[in-house]
Computed example of a mutant assay.
Amino acid sequence: MQNFSVDSCVRLDVFLAKKLNQSRNQVSMLIKDNHVKVNNQIQNKASFVLKIDDEISVQFPKAKEIQSDFEPKFDIEILYEDEYLLVLNKPPLLTVHGASSVKEATLVDWLMSKNYVLSTLNGINRAGLVHRLDKGTSGAIVIAKDNHTHQKLSEQLQDKSMGRYYLALIDLPLKEDKIIAQKALARSLHNRMKKISVEFSEENLKKFGSLKNAKTAFINLLSAQGVNLIAAKLFTGRTHQIRAHLADLNRHILGDELYGYKGKEKFTRVMLHAYFVYFFHPKTKEKLYIKAPLFDDFDTILKKNYKGEENEKISLEFITRTFGTFV
């Protein structure tokens, strides 16, 4: 349980979203499910207006309450684990958490099948998840085992001391070796599964209804025989951010047909991988860099086209040094 004293007259969901470093949607689920009390009385209205000196308590649900209809028949590589958190190497084509449209076992189902005790700061259906990866994207994903650890890592996401470096294979090299894309993202008016990159303006705000600021840095790493390796660094964590920003640059990740890939060679997934994750350990304060090894489909393309030349370019030293020259 976490307790807070109110210091301003604001909506309950707004107050808790700030205190817990979570989205208002996630906080609203906690409120709706009767996990929040104001002055010792359950309050299930997110719009409830607080008064100064109100006392709030949040009782997070137990992750053991999760029930899945699907049994995980796969395993996931553990890259790092201690009593506070773990880092996994998410395989491609694995959905991270359940939803009404998901008809298969998820990463969260796998965690529960291993009897992990997990944080519930994001609700029981997203138990432990500090951040997420798209189904087709592979790589490093951080899991919190308790709510305190989760909150401290969420704070690092907010202040940018936690982040990831991605590798992607794209159809054409970037026009410049170092690029920063800084356009807002909006939901496509023609395909609700897709995001588009637009200028942040009053006109676009009226047109799309909602805009989210987004910033991504890209660097060219290697080019050979129509296969181009790049790295990306996120400054914001929007859905499909890398894919949408690349599409705006008229570049497309191999296999990403949703965002415009039209190559002759077909791929079973989007060739995007979260290669390094970095953060300060919430308990020890040590800065950790954790590498998620490439999966065979991605690694085979690299070895075929670059024959070992890629090893230096995808080293942590090279990637951090190169991004450090312009971001």
Rank of each mutant, 00 (worst) to 15 (best):
A105M: 04
A105K: 03
T106R: 08
V108W: 02
V108R: 06
V108A: 07
M112G: 03
S113K: 14
S113C: 08
N115F: 06
N115P: 10
N115G: 00
Y116H: 14
L118R: 10
L118Y: 01
S119Q: 08
S119H: 04
L121D: 02
N122D: 02
N122C: 13
N122I: 02
G123V: 07
I124D: 07
R126W: 00
G128N: 05
G128D: 01
V130P: 00
H131K: 09
L133F: 09
D134S: 08
T137F: 03
S138M: 10
S138Q: 11
S138F: 12
G139Q: 05
G139F: 00
I141W: 06
D146N: 15
N147Q: 04
T149A: 05
H150L: 04
K152C: 09
L153D: 02
S154M: 14
S154L: 14
E155C: 11
Q156H: 13
L157P: 12
L157F: 15
Q158I: 14
K160I: 06
S161Y: 01
S161H: 06
G163C: 04
G163I: 03
G163T: 10
G163L: 02
R164K: 15
Y165F: 15
Y165L: 15
L167N: 10
L167H: 06
D171A: 06
D171S: 13
L172S: 13
L172A: 13
L172M: 14
P173Y: 02
P173R: 06
P173L: 01
L174P: 12
K175E: 14
K175F: 09
E176L: 13
D177A: 12
K178V: 04
I180W: 00
Q182V: 00
L185W: 08
A186D: 12
A186C: 11
R187C: 09
R187H: 06
S188A: 10
S188N: 09
L189W: 01
L189S: 14
N191D: 15
N191F: 04
M193F: 08
I196A: 05
I196R: 10
E199M: 03
S201V: 06
S201H: 11
E202L: 13
E203S: 11
N204C: 11
N204T: 11
N204D: 08
L205T: 08
L205F: 14
K206F: 10
K207F: 09
